[in-house]
Design a protein around this nucleic acid. Structure first.
Lengths: 250, 250
DNA sequence: AAGTGGTCTAGACCACCAG
DNA sequence: TGGTGGTCTAGACCACTTT
């Protein structure tokens, strides 16, 4: 099954992430020096260097020449596109939320999913398709994949009463979010599920959430353009651009 | 001035980006092999490997084991969270940015604009419409209103060379941002400016920026759905705050 | 002076793909 | 079979910070 062994630099990265996940290495904790890790793992310094450099590029670690390597602060900034539960949103507008399940099961992991979950050893994933209705009008298709180790009891839940978002937030913290937003022309299935007119475009949000250093869930949310828009408002720090610039430069 | 010489791997990266920018290496072009670049630059293969690997990680190149390295299709993503200059984005992908101005002038403030600028005493506003092109392909309509007191010399700028975003960021800090994202069917004007096919939807971002406690600028960005998507990625903070190490770091 | 990270070399072995 | 990228080694020199 698990044919390909992880490269050494990945093993070192995983080791560091495990220490951080477990809480043994809190924010600001000093990571062993490269030479120390070379001894521990019996690998060359270039290999350790690549592992630590990539983790620094990803924002997990902070490195200071002549000083050392430290566990980075989990960042400033709150979300623009927040992780809101659609059932909450609908209820807060005084409407009635209902969810209809149209697919549910374990699925084998395809090449694309391996890539999106950044984990080549994943055997299968939980998969789910829900249609969310506001006062019986469909407003969102939720097409979700979930890492089975993050939520082993995922399918014990009743997702017509507790949304996947609500459940997942209750069992695991989200450390990182990625959103990709597109406008699309829906296919026939989507048009039917959302009861759309012809030529009506959709807004598609593709979202990945990280927990404990790995991708926990990957969800595609499809909204009818005529019935939904996305809104975000947040304060910025005037000095906040420096990190990004440095990162972009490298 | 420029005391520190660039590391070799950076020089290799810059060389590749220059070829792409100049158009010598179009999308899909085969990049010389690592061994070939080793000869050209007189550096070790590890150095070339790091350059090409980082460019692949950044989405500029595509690498296939046993086959070769190729110039990737431009992803044309823009940030949801940050306020990035589109010219910067395009250049960082190794493409050529150009802007075409299609409207420019002072306009009287309508009721809607009074509302959006949250200022009933505003007499007039600066208004501007630009089309941004990536390698001569239109990718964004920028329809912008600017508060005259925030940028009195706004129209002294040459906006085909310095983008409004770049200019405004240079003269004033942004303290707050609001984004509204929609999917729309473009009207005839928009379809012409973006050279769109029939029934092709657009992604519309409506953004307001605050400076010095008031709305500084209100801009509507229209993207062809087929050529652009919006991306946002950020960390949330489940764990504690910073400590002495981080302080010493900054 | 000692330790840290940043970079670089000149080899090497491997998996993969094309002819 | 030859070329490609993916990884790894065992050194090395350097800039930098702390002691």
């Amino acid at each position: 099954m698990n044919s390909a062994p992880q490269p050494l630099y990945r093993q070192v990265k995983e080791h560091v992430l495990r220490q951080i996940r477990s809480g043994d290495w809190p924010t600001g904790h000093r990571v062993p020096s490269e030479n120390r890790l070379v001894e521990e793992f019996g690998v060359s310094r270039m290999t350790v260097n690549r592992a630590l450099r990539e983790l620094a590029d990803e924002g997990v670690l902070r490195r200071l020449q002549g000083v050392g390597t430290f566990v980075a602060r989990p960042s400033r900034q709150t979300s623009l596109v927040e992780l809101r539960d659609i059932a909450d949103e609908i209820r807060s507008r005084g409407r009635v939320h209902r969810a209809r399940m149209t697919a549910r099961g374990r699925v084998p992991t395809t090449a694309v999913l391996h890539q999106r979950f950044e984990d080549a050893s994943l055997g299968h994933l939980f998969h789910l398709v829900l249609v969310h209705l506001e006062n019986e009008v469909p407003v969102q298709i939720e097409d979700r994949y979930v890492h089975p180790q993050v939520a082993p009891q995922f399918f014990d839940q009743d997702f017509e009463h507790v949304t996947p978002t609500e459940y997942l937030l209750s069992i695991t913290p989200v450390s990182e979010l990625e959103h990709v937003v597109r406008a699309t022309v829906p296919n026939a299935t989507e048009r039917a599920l959302l009861e759309l007119g012809i030529h009506e475009p959709c807004l598609v949000v593709h979202r990945r959430s990280w927990s404990w250093g790995r991708v926990a869930t990957d969800v595609t949310l499809t909204y009818p353009a005529s019935r939904y828009e996305l809104r975000g408002r947040h304060r910025t720090s005037p000095t906040g651009t420096l990190d990004g610039v440095q990162h972009a430069a490298s």
